[in-house]
Design a binder for these strands. Sequence first.
DNA 1: GCTATATTTCCAAAATAATGGAAATATGGA
DNA 2: TCCATATTTCCATTATTTTGGAAATATAGC
Lengths: 121, 121
Amino acid sequence: METETALTALTGLAHATRLAIFRLLVPAGAPGLAAGQLGEALRLPPATLSFHLKELRHAGLLTQRRAGRTLYYAADYTAMNALLAYLTENCCQADAGGCEAVCTPVPARKRRSSSATRRPL
Amino acid sequence: METETALTALTGLAHATRLAIFRLLVPAGAPGLAAGQLGEALRLPPATLSFHLKELRHAGLLTQRRAGRTLYYAADYTAMNALLAYLTENCCQADAGGCEAVCTPVPARKRRSSSATRRPL
DNA sequence: GCTATATTTCCAAAATAATGGAAATATGGA
DNA sequence: TCCATATTTCCATTATTTTGGAAATATAGC
C-alpha cells in the first residue's frame, strides 16, 4: 500500500462521525446499510451524512450499491486490511523489548470476536 | 479502547508528516530515535517537528525519554495494537461474503516481516 | 406526466489544524 | 558562571475541513 493511500484512509477514519459510520458497517458485512439507516442511527442531517459517506468512499473504505432509490454502503475489508498491514509494516525490526511482548501472535480462533483480542481481518 | 482514544490516535496518524514520523519509529523499537534525527531525516523546522511530536505523544502513540539534552521518541506498540483491535471489532458478524475471504487468519511466522503479510503486533 | 421518497450536490459561513520564526527552557561542559 | 547544543513553547498567519439549508438528481409507482 502506498503512503498516499494509507493517509487518505486514516484521514477518512479520523473523524467522530465517519468512525461511527465505519464501525456500524464493519459488523454489517457485505449487504451493508442504507444511507437512510445510517442517518437515522446517527441522527445526521442528510447533507452532512452524504458529505462523510463520500469522504469514506473516496478514501476507499466503503463501497456503494444502489437498490431502487436506496443507496447501500458497506465496509471494504480489503482496504481495511491493507491499512493495518501498512501501519505495522516492519514492526519489531529492532527487537529491543516492549515490542516483542506485544507482537506475539494470538492463535486464530473460530468467530465471535470478543473485542478484547484482535485476529487479522 | 474508547472511541475518544481511538479517534485521537487516528487523528494523530492522519497527517503526512506524523505518519512518516511514526513509521520511522515503528521499526526503531524501544530505543526510538532522537528528535534531532527525526528532524534531519524528514527535513523539518524544529518548531514544526516539535508540534507534530507533541501531537503524536498526546495521542498516546509515542513515548518520550530524555538522555542528556536529547529527547528520544519511540512508538508505543500497545497503543498501536489497541487501535487495530478497535478498528476490527466485531468484524465479520454478518458473514455475508467478501469479509470471510479476507478475515482468514494468517498463521504466525517467526520474524522478518515481509510488508505484504501482516501478523498481529 | 405527476408526486413522493431517497439521497446528493452546491456553497458560504464557522470551526479546526498546520506552519515556522523568534524567544524561552533544559542540560552539559569548561 | 558562561557558552553551546537540543528541543520546546508562543503566537500570528495561512490553509484545510466541517456544517447544514436549499436546490438538484435519481428512482418508483400511479
